[in-house]
Design a binder for these strands. Structure first.
Lengths: 225, 225
DNA sequence: AAATCTGGTAACAATTTCTTCATTTTATAT
DNA sequence: ATATAAAATGAAGAAATTGTTACCAGATTT
């Protein structure tokens, strides 16, 4: 695994160096920035795996920075941990609401910092590593959430329809006959009439439109390339 | 990392020595006690990372000892693995309900013992790292205090309901099936009917309202994004 | 000891999803 | 263009899943 990169944004240079030292010792790549604006610029360029963000800063403060990040397609998926000067509950809550993933209060315990960072990264890796999200044409089929997105719309398909769509989409372009679909989606020793597939295809088309699944007469169905 | 300490409580001296030998070989620090009372005393003084506890013992038996431990602020967070003489299902279940984290039946396989210990320790380390305060929608789920806040209101959910809510919320958006929920919230070795999850979900909804947990028919439940 | 929680089970009602089938429409080969 | 097989459609009943309530056994409090 390549080194993971952490962007640290804080206006106190000494603290920045201290954190850098500790993170490097743990094997992380470290980027630094001294205010929110600079932080966002660096993030855009280097795409860090995580951002450690001070809440109180001149120019653009941490809260503002996160809001901006969450609005940017490229940056919105990067986890953020806040550094707050004191245990100010109100701030914490607000920060987490704005899209932070965790927070740590100063003064910082190195051990805690490291373990929190690892915990957040682990949580994020878990999320990413699964190939359960298919993006095809203008739709996203998310098997973790069981939701199909088309532009802004959300579709909640029932299980069989969803699984069928997912299976077809995961083999985009390939024609699959009804028996194969039954075996793969319904299960091997389940007995249902193969025309059942037709009905499900129809329901999917009713909901999403019929530009996704093609009929190949005499053979089966195919998800359009 | 400093050596991890394991307290072994058993009235059979030979077994005690055998376990000690094996654990030391694995690099653990080992403490010994011959009954529940002594065990608790030692635990209080030395703060072990894990306790290996025989269920059947003179003076104070293991079951009693765990209950006492779980009531003691200093000791309640220490993981406990039971040693049971035979595979007596009823005892196991009871033990796990009282607050044990795993159990091993005698006669003991050293390999199994070691791997269980490591597994439990790993699980615990992870837990410690995790954030204990979740901010989702308009509620705050505070695992340190076992309290859910919604605006100004405070809700005290019973343990299972709380843990279930917490787990779902910590995986916000992801659909989790009943089996996964049972494994993660109830524990790997506990056998309960999976519909139990439904009832707990309902109770949570009754208290907090049903805008938080969504049902995904045929699949499981999801905390709303 | 009674009253109150908590966690779990079971049963039935309510709802959604799945499957089938009869009928209409479409695609394709002749 | 027509015949024909295959697929789309509509609608109904079956099956599966969940919501809900009631109840019970232990624990915990009063």
């Amino acid at each position: 695994m390549p080194k993971q990169t952490i962007l640290v944004v804080d206006d106190e240079k000494d603290l920045l160096d201290l954190i850098e030292y500790n993170l490097k010792k743990e094997g992380f790549e470290v980027l630094k920035a001294e205010n929110g604006e600079e932080g966002i610029a660096v993030a855009k360029e280097k795409n860090p795996d995580l951002v450690l963000l001070d809440i109180m800063m001149p120019k653009m403060d941490g809260m503002q920075a996160v809001e901006d990040m969450r609005r940017d397609d490229q940056l919105k998926k990067i986890p953020v941990i806040f550094l707050t000067a004191r245990s100010d509950e109100k701030t914490e809550v607000e920060g987490l609401n704005k899209g932070g993933d965790d927070y740590i209060t100063k003064p910082i315990s190195t051990t805690k910092l490291i373990s929190r960072i690892k915990a957040v990264l682990r949580r994020f890796d878990e999320k990413e590593e699964e190939t359960n999200v298919l993006e095809v044409h203008d739709i996203t089929i998310d098997r973790d959430r069981y939701i199909v997105n088309k532009k802004e719309e959300e579709f909640h398909l029932p299980r069989k329809e969803f699984e069928l769509l997912f299976f077809l989409a995961s083999r985009k372009g390939k024609v699959l006959d009804r028996q194969t679909l039954l075996n793969k989606v319904w299960g091997d020793n389940i007995y249902v009439v193969d025309r059942t597939v037709d009905v499900h295809v129809r329901k999917i088309r009713e909901k999403l439109g019929d530009h996704y699944i093609e009929t190949v007469k005499g053979v089966g169905y195919r998800f359009k390339e």
